[in-house]
């Protein structure tokens, strides 16, 4: 049976297919598996970050610190590996744990002091970005062989195309998140809190723990996104991933998640990221257009999606079953 609540995500998938087909007709060489896998390769870090953001937004919050967290992760990784000479096998778990803790801390402040997530994560954003420059104001290039291997390794797919290890990591995160969101209590509690925190509390759900875990998960995702971004850039730099949080939010919303919380899909976010990627790709193929056109198209799309969600909501509220 078709369910009305799946309409936004169908629109997202449909839009992606449409844009991809449009590109395929317009440009020769666009319609190939490699263009598709490149989408994933170039946006693996965004995908990971957006997955974490999905949970936060579904819970009714927002996390503005993710972009800075990515930058801080690249910085920490670069300085520890290159300047301190620590092995990657220590550095990577360390930065992931740091991301978790950072998110958990913000979640705790949000919950226990009852402060809007917007302002807490805004503070977190400035703090993380500032910490980058404490480490260095310059780019730190990474020459470590493990990072280089991770960056260079190509996994061959049938048909001659390939993906990077980052893509495997990102897809694993998506699968994990799908499971978390739909088949665990943590996931369902997140949806419940987004629907009505007050109700969730009165239903006896562990609101405090869930909220803090949501931000910890987002912190983890942004740190992991940072690790993947380090593979991609092979450097640490305080100006990495500026504005990434906004791309992530855009991807989540285009993916059909309501900013008011309670409704959203990890799968939608996956396609939201792909849509952002495919627009970028088309503008690259066009050749003559400035890359700022990406922003213009994303802006228009966001408007359309917000209006679409509103329309669906209004219609749904008029169509009560009983």
């Amino acid at each position: 049976m078709f369910k009305r609540q799946y309409l936004p995500i169908l629109v997202t998938v449909g839009l992606f297919v449409l844009v991809f087909l449009a590109g395929s007709f317009r440009y020769t060489g666009f319609f190939s598996l490699q263009v598709l896998t490149n989408l994933l390769i170039d946006n693996a870090f965004l995908l990971i970050v957006a997955v974490g953001m999905t949970f936060v937004i579904v819970s009714g919050g927002i996390d503005l610190s993710v972009g800075s967290m990515v930058a801080l992760t690249t910085m920490l990784s670069a300085t520890l590996v290159e300047q301190q000479g620590w092995p990657p096998s220590v550095v990577i778990p360390l930065v992931l744990a740091f991301g978790c803790l950072y998110g958990f801390g913000m979640g705790a402040i949000i919950h226990y002091f009852n402060i809007q997530p917007f302002i807490v994560t805004l503070a977190g954003m400035f703090l993380a970005r500032g910490l980058c420059y404490i480490i260095s104001i310059n780019t730190i290039t990474i020459n470590d062989s493990f990072y280089k291997d991770m960056a260079m390794t190509k996994i061959q797919l049938p048909g001659g195309s390939f993906v990077s290890i980052s893509v495997i990591i990102a897809l694993a995160v998506v699968l994990l998140a799908l499971y978390l969101a739909h088949y665990t209590r943590f996931g369902r509690n997140t949806y419940a809190i987004g629907g009505s925190e007050q109700s969730a509390l009165l239903m006896g759900l562990p609101v405090a723990r869930t909220k803090m875990l949501v931000y910890a998960f987002s912190g983890f995702c942004s740190a992991l996104g940072g690790v993947v971004f380090t593979f991609y850039m092979l450097s640490g730099y305080g100006l990495h991933a500026v504005g990434l949080e906004l791309d992530a939010i855009a991807a989540v919303v285009i993916g059909g998640t309501l900013l008011t919380g309670g409704v959203g899909y990890v799968a939608g976010t996956f396609f939201g990221v792909l849509i952002l990627g495919v627009i970028q790709t088309i503008i690259n193929f066009e050749g003559t257009l400035s890359s700022w056109w990406t922003k213009i198209v994303i802006g228009v799309l966001l408007f359309l999606f917000i209006i679409l969600q509103r329309v669906i909501n209004v219609r749904a509220s008029k169509m009560k079953v009983i």
Binding site: Y191, A192, G194, S196, M203
Partner: peptide
């Protein structure tokens, strides 16, 4: 009603 209207009846 203090339930979460975004979730299904069963949930």
């Amino acid at each position: 009603v203090n339930l979460c209207t975004n979730l299904s009846v069963a949930e």
